[in-house]
């Protein structure tokens, strides 16, 4: 028998899909925005709230994205906007995933009337278009970024609840769960150690995709006057100012590009994660 030598290069494992191509670009983009959000106070080009030049000046060497109606530097305000949009999106996603996980896991694992009641609640919430529901909740709570955040959490959690419940129902029917039951493991232990770890991948993938959507919805709520209050440099609010000064295209273009970059990056990363874990997309 002759041993066959296999070249080392052929047995080297390839990097996972989410660390290659567009996904890598997305990750870098998100990383840069996160870095900007954290560090902008240390190196801000200008004061985002104070006039620094004449009003409505076009892009120039001094002001790359021009100035707005109050003479504030548009690029500076766009960069500062990351400090609002990104933390809001992180908070919304984490809160929605937590709530969705608790409710989805309870429904899927306990079954019976608990499942029926919780899932009908999910059905009712998901019966409304998310932006309309978010608008209605924000309008009733009062405009402002905090209330917009609460509204978005209330809109988003059912997605994760439904997703996780489906996973939990599938996992708990597997044989190793029966084995765990047979050896006398408690329900809580089974759920924590054997069910949830096997159910969480789709939630992670969806959360990545949804991050961009939350950024977009935050901007949308601010755009219609329900989100950030002036003079906050929130991206949606800045686009509203751009709508008033339509012929000064740079005012809306700058935050618009920022939104585009963040949402695109999230989509790249989310797509790659989905391919990697072979997860079916869940949409409302």
């Amino acid at each position: 028998m002759t041993a066959i030598a296999v070249p080392a290069a052929r047995i080297r494992r390839r990097r996972p899909a989410w660390l290659r191509g567009p996904s890598l670009i997305g990750l870098i983009s998100l990383g840069v925005w996160a870095l900007v959000a954290v560090t902008i106070p240390l190196w801000t080009p200008n004061d985002p709230l104070a006039p620094v030049a004449g009003r409505l000046l076009g892009p120039s060497v001094k002001h790359w994205m021009g100035t707005d109606a109050l003479g504030r530097d548009v690029l500076t305000r766009t960069l500062w906007g990351a400090r609002i949009s990104i933390p809001v999106a992180v908070t919304v996603i984490i809160s929605a995933v937590l709530i969705g996980t608790i409710i989805g896991a309870a429904a899927g694992f306990l079954g019976g009337w608990v499942d029926a009641v919780l899932m009908r609640l999910v059905d009712i919430t998901m019966a409304f278009p998310p932006i309309l529901l978010a608008m209605a909740i924000t309008a009733s709570l009062g405009p402002g970024i905090r209330n917009a955040l609460i509204a978005m959490v209330l809109v988003w959690w059912p997605i994760y609840a439904r997703l996780l419940r489906a996973q939990v129902v599938a996992v708990r029917q597997r044989e190793y769960i029966d084995s765990a039951v047979a050896i006398g493991a408690s329900r809580w232990l089974i759920l924590r150690r054997y069910v949830l770890p096997m159910s969480y991948t789709p939630v992670l993938v969806n959360a990545t995709m949804d991050f961009g959507q939350v950024v977009l919805l935050t901007a949308s709520l601010s755009f219609i006057g329900l989100g950030a209050r002036p003079p906050s440099p929130e991206w949606g609010a800045m686009i509203t100012e751009g709508a008033t000064n339509f012929y000064q295209w740079w005012i809306a273009a700058s935050p618009g590009i920022a939104i585009l970059l963040v949402v695109l990056a999230c989509n790249f990363v989310g797509d790659a994660l989905r391919d990697s874990f072979d997860v079916k997309e869940v949409t409302r």
Binding site: W235, A253, L260
Partner: peptide
């Protein structure tokens, strides 16, 4: 979802 062109 086309906010940057919203002013049209």
């Amino acid at each position: 979802g086309s906010l940057m062109f919203a002013a049209c």
